[in-house]
Design a protein around this nucleic acid. Structure first.
Length: 686
RNA sequence: GGCGAGGUAGCUCAGUUGGUUAGAGCGUCGGAUUCAUAACCCGGAGGUCAGGGGUUCAAAUCCCCUCCUCGCUACCA
């Protein structure tokens, strides 16, 4: 269907700072595996690469948490990931790791070439530096008080409590998480890739070139980034756990993980090629190669903009042909979250259902978030397994083998299959091929099941259990047709259900892989063949299994949340204790008064801001407060509130705010503070 | 608020060069059947395609407005 001579298929490198869940599987690994398996069965030249992304700051943070060295941590999770993918039959040609020396070398070559050709901009910026540890602090190594929600759990890049993304210099009272000391600002040099210089290239290659053949979600998001104007982006960081910057005099500089990680695809290909004794270059540098990146939507910008710009700037490389990005998979209607334990990790599934990997593959493929976020529910899982895999596929195989053994002791009598059946198989094969090439895996799966449905229909229509009494010869033909459907189902099922496909082949004394071209080949079923009796292809999943999983999920998330709450409690206690002692003079500077809210309006074009008019003594103060999510106008109108009267005025959204309203906060909810009996406006609080 | 993606049957979702009667699976109801893991097969019911307006001989599909969901992003003394 295409003119490509070879295919380079990549699946997003899992960042090995923890266990990966089924959302990751559905997002990148399963679709890419189906695609790669299909192409191999088409006898195409394919390399399918993936590997652990093992560098960067979050690794070091997780290592501290688990009390392991960086290397021990990545070794641990690399091993787990590798095994999990093997068990789920994800058929990577190589599962690599970015801590490999070959990768370091490859990434450094990239960097050096850019450096020597003047493709970087050297920029000096001020960064936090921990003098006691003699190191610059990456964002995650700085903790302080969030300027937004006052939580003291805010990191340099984001507040864990309110989720606001931050710049390290936004933090109040920043501390180094390494030493606990207050860091100083110090000048540092980094190398920036001026993405804005490549807008013309992106305009032509992506905006114009990919408009009609990329999925709307991928294209839309990439276009949105380009349209909003690209900025130079630093391709280096201060740190030690990463690819060292290959320049003299910068021992503490490493490459930004998003610079080196996608290069990992290339390093992985190099390693695979050298192990195999072939040349890696055509897979990345030849125009007749199709390069496809399978990713989740969180990686779109890196795979559609930054990495292509890198490849383009380098000059020797081809660009990705397709970037089929999937949306997210929810679990029981809610977004998966590792920190809230609302997730199904691949290791958990394998532990509970070690023999049912095809069932998971089937379920996930049938709900792949191809167009929009989709949902995995245990009930749905049970339904899909029981009413499709068991009732349609497994049942067909069972029906046919039972009849065959009953009437013919399992021996196949050869008959030429009818042309109608041949036509049907050919049609399904074409439909499935086309769907896979269009990355419509759900559709492909539906067409696959049609083959088994057809078999059940043949049986019901011809009733061989009756026919055997009147027309033994016709009975043989019907059963032969059914066997042919089963075998061909197996061939076409190989990309989706590899274990089940092999089970089917075993009945016919055949071994996978069987090429796509063999669909409809009558010589595969030998005359007078004795079918090997098989166990049931799929087993029903009973209600209690599903109930147990749902209970387990709820228990898991509740215990984590309880844990979190107690941690929060400790954190809050710490907040109280961690504030420095103040003198009476300091306290006396604050003028706290009671006022009454006289008018409220929402600040235009904001979600959280309310503009309030508050009466204190003789005057009306205008105060802007970020509380619109907690209170409506009715809640506060004519109510008394606690006001910090002498706070320096500040303009917010063009309105001068003359004071500050004080509220009690409990678990993120704001509660109004007011005297128990009404007092006159302006009454002081001391 | 800005940007992106969605809103189609009870549920999960397909469906764009605009074109008969809007589809599938599951569920539901009815029928048929017993070879089979109470499974399979046939049939029915079920939709103002989020709402409104426009373009057109013709709109789920193109344009405009509004509402809702998700993601990114902005304001938060």
């Amino acid at each position: 269907m295409t003119q490509y001579k070879r295919y380079t298929i990549t699946a997003a490198l899992p960042y090995v700072n923890g266990h990966k869940h089924i959302g990751h599987l559905a997002g990148a690994y399963l679709p890419s595996d189906v695609y790669a398996r299909y192409l191999r069965l088409m006898n195409r030249d394919v390399v399918f690469v993936c590997g652990s992304d093992e560098l960067g700051t979050p690794i070091t943070i997780q290592a501290l948490k688990e009390n392991l060295s960086n290397q021990e941590l990545v070794d641990k999770y690399h091993q787990i990931s590798k095994e999990v993918f093997e068990k789920l039959d994800i058929s990577f040609d190589i599962y690599y790791r970015t801590s490999d020396p070959l990768h370091i070398e490859t990434a450094q070559e990239f960097f050096l070439k850019f450096y020597q050709e003047g493709k970087f901009q050297e920029v000096e910026t001020m960064q936090y530096y921990d003098e006691s540890m003699d190191m610059f602090l990456a964002d995650r190594y700085i903790q302080g008080i969030c300027p937004n929600c006052q939580s003291d759990k805010a990191y340099g890049d984001q507040c864990e409590s309110c989720g606001k993304s931050l710049d390290p210099t936004d933090l109040i009272n920043p501390k180094s998480t390494v030493s606990g000391n207050t860091p100083i600002l110090k000048s540092t040099k980094n190398w920036y890739l001026p993405l804005d210089n490549y807008e013309e290239f992106l305009q032509k290659w992506l905006i114009e070139g990919k408009k009609s053949n990329w999925k709307s979600n991928t294209y839309g998001q990439a276009k949105s980034w380009i349209d909003s104007g690209l900025q130079p982006r630093s391709m280096t960081r201060d740190g030690k756990w990463g690819v060292p910057v290959p320049l003299e005099g910068y021992p503490d500089k490493i490459l930004y993980v998003w610079f080196d990680a996608p290069i990992g695809y290339i390093s992985a290909t190099k390693k695979w090629a050298s192990d195999k004794g072939v040349d890696w270059k055509p897979y990345w540098q030849s125009e007749d190669t199709k390069l496809v990146h399978f990713i989740g939507k969180d990686n779109i910008v890196f795979h559609t903009i930054i990495f292509p710009v890198m490849l383009h700037a380098h000059g020797d490389f081809i660009l990705p042909t397709d970037v089929p990005a999937n949306e997210f998979l929810n679990l029981e209607g809610k977004k998966m979250s590792t920190s809230r334990a609302w997730s199904l990790e691949m290791t958990e599934y394998l532990n509970d259902f070690p023999e049912q990997t095809d069932e998971l593959r089937y379920m996930l493929l049938s709900v792949l978030p191809e167009q929009k976020d989709s949902d995995f529910s245990w009930q749905d899982f049970q339904l899909k397994v029981n009413s499709e895999l068991v009732a349609i596929v497994g049942n067909l195989v069972n029906r046919v083998t039972v009849l065959l053994f009953k009437y013919y002791s399992g021996e196949v009598k050869f008959h030429k299959s009818c042309s109608e059946l041949q036509g049907f198989l050919k049609t399904q094969k074409e439909k499935i091929s086309q769907a896979i090439e269009d990355y419509k895996f759900r559709e492909a799966l539906t067409e696959l099941i049609q083959i088994a449905r057809h078999g059940n229909k043949l049986l019901t229509e011809n009733e061989p259990w009756k026919l055997i009494k009147t027309d033994p010869e016709k009975t043989q033909i019907v059963l032969y047709d059914c066997l042919e459907l089963i075998l061909n189902f197996g061939i076409l099922a190989q990309p989706f259900l590899p274990k089940s496909a092999q089970k089917i082949f075993s009945m016919f004394h055949l071994v996978a892989p069987i090429s796509w071209d063999e669909v409809g080949n009558e010589n595969l079923i030998k005359s007078n063949l004795i079918i090997a009796p098989t166990a049931l292809l799929f087993n029903k999943i009973e209600d209690n299994i599903i109930e147990a999983q749902i209970l387990k999920l709820n228990a898991k998330t509740q215990s984590i949340m309880a844990n979190e709450n107690s941690k929060n409690q400790i954190q809050e206690d710490l907040t109280i204790n961690s504030k420095p002692e103040v003198s009476y003079e300091d306290f006396d500077k604050l003028n706290l008064v009671i006022g009454t809210v006289k008018a409220i309006e929402k600040v235009e074009k904001t979600d959280k801001l309310l503009k309030l008019s508050v009466a204190i003594s003789g005057e009306i103060r205008t105060i802007v407060s970020g509380i619109a999510l907690h209170f409506t106008a009715e809640d506060l109108l004519e109510k008394q509130v606690l006001v910090l009267e002498n706070l320096a005025p500040r303009k917010i959204r063009g309105i001068e705010s003359q004071g500050m309203l004080l509220f009690a906060e409990d678990q993120g909810k704001l509660i109004r503070i007011a005297p128990t009996d009404s007092v006159s406006n302006g009454s002081s609080v001391s």
